[in-house]
């Protein structure tokens, strides 16, 4: 339900951009708020918006355990990690670094070993999607 609300808000943000004829404009024209996420993933699967939606699903399945629902690093498994899992909302890591640490894990990039390597578990598309979702999750 929260995801749907977020999508509706996102779609509402597309409306002022309609005049520009952007990708987001096309999405807003084709996809109705009621099934916006399914529509975007289905009809606009190569767009950043679709990638972020898929990335959120990857995040909820694999990352939320440590990094928490909102990415603050307060997932239910955070208590067994010292240092605590990264606050992804406050992260300033470049996207290339996200790609690397997701694939190789913390130990693989010379950091805390609590972050597992996901390169064997996730596809290239899933890693790209979760990277796009994490970048969108950031707050200034």
């Amino acid at each position: 339900m929260r995801a749907s609300l977020r999508t509706i808000i996102s779609l509402a943000a597309f409306v002022p951009m309609a005049a520009a004829g952007s990708e987001q404009d096309q999405i807003a024209k084709v996809c109705k708020p009621a099934d916006a996420e399914d529509c975007i993933v289905r009809e606009f699967k190569h767009t950043l918006e679709a990638s972020k939606i898929r990335g959120r699903i990857v995040y909820k399945n694999y990352c939320v355990l440590c990094h928490g629902e909102t990415g603050m690093g307060d997932g239910r498994a955070a208590k067994v990690h010292t240092p605590k899992p990264a606050n992804l909302v406050a992260s300033k890591a470049p996207p290339e670094y996200i790609d690397l640490i997701v694939r190789k894990g913390g130990e693989g990039v010379g950091r805390y070993r609590g972050m597992p390597p996901w390169g064997d578990q996730l596809t290239d598309e899933q890693i790209a999607d979760v990277k796009n979702y994490l970048v969108a999750l950031r707050r200034p």
Binding site: R76, A77, K79, V80, H81, G105, E107, R113, G114, P116, P117
Partner: peptide
């Protein structure tokens, strides 16, 4: 994460 034993073996 259980109370009786809480641990993380790493990967």
């Amino acid at each position: 994460l259980s109370d009786a034993a809480s641990f993380d073996l790493g990967s």
